[in-house]
Design a binder for these strands. Structure first.
Lengths: 323, 323
DNA sequence: TTGAAAGCGATACCAT
DNA sequence: ATGGTATCGCTTTCAA
């Protein structure tokens, strides 16, 4: 049953020392051990194939060295890439991560949180569409990822700034009618990118372009693309709030005979691998996933900062903007 | 520190019963409890906000109700979708999954396995590029996913049959020169899809088309696509061993001015979401990820079967085959 | 029906 | 430097 039926007791007996000494050797402390004893213990460990039982250690020390990560959808490439980055950063500190999807449903999320809490995770990273679940009483580090929630630790990209840079880039191409395809998560608007888009337009003395609010999905983007193509006065550029949506927009425009970037220029937010490989290759505002992941893990390990920290994005020029 | 500082002891004291009774109530057994006592315990649990400590329970029962899942790359959409499906199936049985990437590296994989073993996972699902790591002595259920390894429990799609169906479909379109772009994982060839391709050609009395072996990545596919476009006699159809590679192939062909499906028809293996949304939409042989995931979890829970079980694939017709 | 208590495997304090 | 042992929170047998 148990991955290693060999316990610290067996090791102690084999090495002819007490269990305490085994502990000291395994953990390099907190007491010193004579070289001979240490050698005998290491030998015993090798011979018996002993592996410390992390469950027992967790019970004793109160720390599982395990993080929980909840995303709305593990199949979403953005979250998959983010999860990978978090796994990597966590692994470097000796942590592993329990990852699970909440399907964008608040009730499911609550259940998953309870499940992870029961398992005594040492920290919780939440990519949540709605508000953070009530974690009062659960005294553990919680970091919200990719959403900015007041009063809670959160790390994400600088949405507003990134969006503004995207719009400025399009303005630089001479566009004056710049549309926005913006996502909504859990029927809630995400204000930052919209604000950035508007700021970019204002700064250039331009009026708002048409705006469409759709789900953060390829299908949502597809609907938005059809809407775009059907407008009386078609905008000549569009900023899309996610790669996934942009992929849908591209298809809709292609089907409508609208060429990208010749007829409509497109810039998207996120910068996943898929965006690099679609046709035409998407110019994107890239989220610094690795840096964000490091920060998430840092806060989970060292304690959350209690406020939102936002990382600068990077404009990656490819084909869809018409450069 | 601890997610719930309230222990079963506190509950017992508050309810005025012994800790055993609390246990009986929480676990619905193994002894009966009087209605009054049960009510008092439930009340105490509610009032105190008690959550059973799964770590302690695991230590006592010997089961963590946690699975480990190692993929070569969590960022790969196929593995992300697979992981999501496994998470879902596991969740339905009250399990959670520790998911981690091994970067396609055997040594890293060994380390990750050790890490998960130390955490007393109740079972291990391995999407491994190379051979299964040595798990002798680690007495726990192990299931290999998406690879067929002799003598070990494994679940995957019927690669050979799927590939053959793909080729037969292309043959049905009248193609006689059908190329193969096949992946290799960890410098090892994956023979099944290649065999299926060959079988399909044989059955139609056709000779082997050109074959290129590249990595399972978009970049690998791109290289293969350039090779395809540069051949003296260009094949009129190609079967690609993964969606990711197909995306690369499509780009290379597009850049070379080769139209899909008019000049070259393409069918890919996998059936991830990305394949549905690229241009043109890929006709694919879809892996039944949900069914496979259920089987993986079933075996992890009920005990592995010790041999390979393969699931039928589904040909999904879209645009790239020229139907 | 209920309670007392042993024990899961590891840690670390208190002695020696 | 080392050993004995209480303890983490929970499950379950045994006795009452």
């Amino acid at each position: 049953m148990s991955p290693s039926p060999v316990t610290r007791n067996d090791v102690a007996r084999y090495a002819g020392v007490s269990t305490a000494v085994v502990s000291y050797v395994v953990n390099d402390g907190p007491r010193a051990v004579s070289p001979q004893a240490r050698e005998r213990v290491l030998e015993a460990i090798r011979v018996l194939g002993y592996r410390p039982n992390a469950t027992a250690r967790a019970l004793r020390t109160g720390s599982t060295k395990t993080f929980g990560l909840i995303t709305p959808d593990g199949g979403n490439p953005l979250f998959a890439e983010l999860a990978k980055a978090i796994d990597k950063a966590a692994g470097e500190r000796g942590y592993v991560v329990l990852q699970t999807s909440a399907d964008g449903d608040a009730e499911t999320e609550r259940l998953k949180v309870a499940e992870l809490l029961a398992r005594q995770v040492s920290g919780l990273a939440l990519v949540t569409p709605a508000e953070a679940p009530d974690l009062a009483g659960a005294d553990l580090p919680v970091v919200i990822v990719n959403r900015v929630l007041p009063g809670v630790s959160s790390v994400g990209p600088r949405y507003r700034e990134g969006a503004r840079v995207a719009v400025e880039h399009l303005v630089g191409h001479g566009h004056t009618r710049i549309a926005l395809v913006i996502g909504e998560s859990g029927a809630k608007p995400v204000p930052e990118r919209e604000r950035g888009w508007r700021e970019g337009l204002r700064a250039a003395g331009l009026p708002d372009g048409p705006l469409m609010r759709v789900a953060f999905s390829r299908e949502g983007g597809y609907a938005a693309g059809r809407w775009l193509a059907g407008l009386e006065v078609t905008p000549t550029a569009v900023f899309v709030s996610s790669d996934l949506q942009a992929v849908g927009v591209l298809r809709a425009l292609r089907e409508a005979g609208v060429r990208v970037p010749e007829d409509v220029a497109v810039v998207a937010f996120d910068g996943t691998a898929e965006a690099e490989w679609c046709a035409p290759a998407l110019t994107v505002v890239r989220q610094p996933l690795e840096r964000m992941a490091s920060e998430v893990v840092r806060q989970l390990v060292e304690g959350p900062v209690g406020r939102s920290t936002a990382y600068p994005t990077e404009l990656v020029i490819r084909k869809s903007c018409g450069c």
